[in-house]
Amino acid sequence: MKRSLLPILCCPTCKGDLVLSVVEEDESEILEGSLYCSACGVSYPITEGIPDLLPRKKNI
């Protein structure tokens, strides 16, 4: 996903802001990483460039 998408996305559960963590990035976009909702304590993965914003349980 491109960094410019971040303000357009939100936590699927509480609709709050997400914090981006990057593991792998090329010149145009983030390939691996996560989007973290601090209110819910849930991390949503970015895998092969695709953020997965389906609701999920709190991380351990």
Binding site: P12, P51, L53
Partner: peptide, 14 residues
């Protein structure tokens, strides 16, 4: 394409 996996508008603000 720029793609997000979600259910309707769940993770999408606009």
């Amino acid at each position: 394409l720029d793609v997000v996996r979600t259910d309707l508008f769940m993770g999408i603000r606009g």
